[in-house]
Design a protein around this nucleic acid. Structure first.
Lengths: 203, 203
DNA sequence: ACATGTGAAGCGCTTCACAGCG
DNA sequence: CGCTGTGAAGCGCTTCACATGT
């Protein structure tokens, strides 16, 4: 399955959830309009899930939703830990959208002594030393300053966490088999800044 | 200039800033190791900025830093507005990294009456109606719930904002000439979830 | 008639391999 | 000799166009 397709499946899921509940089928054309991609793209993507559409009709919305969820491994709750309970970490811990989409925060970590022991949303902040490989954490979120990111990634990987979402402004290296996705505010703003400085030619 | 290259320039910049200050040159090999890409990639990317390396030696760190900054349009401060001052919007408003990297928050907006008039970090929250095309906002950050995202994007585009960073879990459509980048927590987690469910084959 | 599924063509990015230059 | 800069090859994704199926 192409990585580019994987990155779009959540978008399709989002669009399906935005559909009127009485809607029973969608065409690739409609999904494409809602997702900002081409209809051919939608069909190619969905074909990787098997042949699920009905020619002349479209895709069954319920069936498609379940198929995408299954493909993404969204069966039951996925346990998530947040490391770094500062501005951003706190906001993430308070974010409602986790539960609605199949993720559950199970632990908060910080290394600052003044924070360890405090509570956010029913979770007591613990020191990263307390990270337990047996806790079954599936995804670790790094919300620390950049300087600490690599060290935290090492700890997470060492504890068997195989997926990391890195919000820190730093490149982190991980062993093979660990997947990292980077979300850096400054990077995004700088990319946007480029396109401000270099507007697309009118066509 | 390839979009993929533009997306890596901020990473190179980050790596340059992480270098010891007495370091006068870097090789593509070193930058590559720090950025998690290949050396050939680094050379190709930097060649788009012109020929700036010295064969047998490497790249001048100072010169390279300035060149990338110029290419990204990071001369002076870029004015940024945040729309939606909830969990995430507040965290973003308090984020220190903006100033350090050439961006300046100049306005906060929200539509919730209870929030309008309150202050965060020396900025009074205003209603989105008060968005002024003449304020010269370069980048708008959407940090609202998903339902409001499209409407906010329309307002921003209408006020002449040509770059939007969308944190809301929704696909937003914008007129030609406006650049949007999406950063969605749930989407990222779902992508990671896929790779948990489908581990890469050992090789 | 209508919309999916898909080989094939097209396109952009990455990687290779080496010429060019200090 | 070392490292950059770059044509060319390779690769993966997107788009096209239409055969397929209901």
């Amino acid at each position: 399955m192409p990585r580019a397709t994987v990155a779009r499946l959540p978008v399709y899921l989002q669009c399906l959830d935005g559909l009127p509940t009485d809607r029973q089928t969608v065409s690739s054309e409609e999904l494409a309009a809602a997702s900002n991609v081409t209809a051919a793209q939608v069909r190619k993507d969905l074909s990787h899930l098997g042949s699920n559409g009905v020619r002349g009709v479209g895709y069954d919305t319920q069936r498609l939703r379940r198929l995408i969820q299954r493909e993404l491994g969204l069966t039951g709750d996925v346990p998530v830990a947040i490391v770094g309970v500062g501005n951003l970490g706190t906001a993430l811990a308070n974010y409602q959208g986790f539960g609605e989409r199949g993720f559950r925060i199970v632990a908060l970590f910080d290394s600052h002594p003044a924070k360890v022991g405090a509570s956010v949303r029913d979770h007591t902040i613990r020191h990263l030393d307390q990270l337990d490989p047996k806790a079954g954490i599936a995804i670790g979120i790094i919300a620390t300053p950049g300087e600490a990111a690599q060290q935290v990634a090492d700890r997470l990987a060492g504890a068997g966490v195989r997926s990391i979402l890195n919000f820190a402004p730093a490149v982190v290296r991980v062993p093979p088999g660990v997947e990292v996705r980077n979300v850096d505010l400054s990077t995004e703003l700088q990319i946007l800044s480029f396109y401000l400085a270099h507007p697309a030619k009118a066509g």
